[in-house]
């Protein structure tokens, strides 16, 4: 597991209409993220736990190239994610507490050379008092190109062939005995290898079937239940 990016996540800002003092829910919040300590920030994955946010939009602020110090030079904003649905039905609980991971594959633009991110949280339903993102963390890469944990035979070659090859390879690398009276070492080691492979197989495919034991050392005398 790689480390989350060092960034500053500002407090969410409620969007208000007209008078700020009027307490009105408008169903939209903005969270700004800046990277004060990183030279060239790059974001490959956004992880968080949802708390009643219905849709999420992510905008990125890009560093302008060459910075010719024009007075009217606006920083460039791009929309990276637009209204990603986090709750299928905003009025009901579904999705309200999900763990979400958004990776560069879902991003519309690459998040490199940016100076800041802006998350726009929407909750159109008035029934929720609060909505926010919890445990928000950014990562440089999306976990990296991990090798598939699937066995190779499922993807292409049948497994038996691969195994046989390894057995042969190991067998051929053993030094030749060939002395009279000594059994053929090649054959012996090949057999041993096979035996070993069998033993390995058995030990890796341990059954998860429980024996159905519920006693401890054959004893199941209980007086009262424990509160935990």
């Amino acid at each position: 597991m790689d480390k989350p990016l060092n960034c500053t996540i500002k407090n969410p800002v409620n969007l208000t209409l007209g008078d700020i003092k009027v307490d009105m829910l408008c169903g939209c919040k903005v969270v700004d993220i800046t990277f004060p300590n990183i030279m060239s920030p790059e974001v490959g994955e956004i992880r968080f736990k949802n708390f009643y946010v219905a849709t999420l939009t992510v905008k990125a602020k890009y560093r302008t190239e060459n910075t010719p110090r024009h007075t009217g030079d606006q920083p460039k904003w791009k929309t990276c994610l637009k209204r990603v649905k986090l709750m299928p039905d905003p009025h009901s609980e579904a999705g309200s507490h999900d763990y979400i991971s958004l990776t560069s594959r879902q991003f519309r633009c690459e998040l490199s050379n940016i100076t800041g991110l802006r998350l726009i949280l929407h909750q159109p339903s008035p029934v929720w008092r609060e909505f926010k993102l919890e445990e928000l963390r950014l990562f440089r890469s999306a976990g990296g190109p991990k090798t598939s944990p699937l066995p190779t035979w499922l993807l292409e070659e049948p497994k038996a062939k691969v195994q046989k090859k390894t057995v042969q390879r190991v067998a051929s690398s053993t030094p030749k005995g060939g002395e009279g009276g000594v059994p053929d070492l090649d054959g012996l080691s090949a057999n041993l290898q096979q035996l070993w492979a069998l033993a390995e197989e058995v030990s890796t495919s341990q059954t998860s079937q429980s024996l159905g034991r519920f006693e401890v050392d054959g004893c199941y005398d209980i007086n009262l239940l424990a509160y935990t």
Binding site: V216, D221, L224, L225, A226
Partner: peptide
């Protein structure tokens, strides 16, 4: 629900 064998209250084993 969890419990403990008689006389072994609190011993996880």
């Amino acid at each position: 629900p969890k419990s403990y064998i008689r006389g072994k209250l609190g011993v996880e084993e």
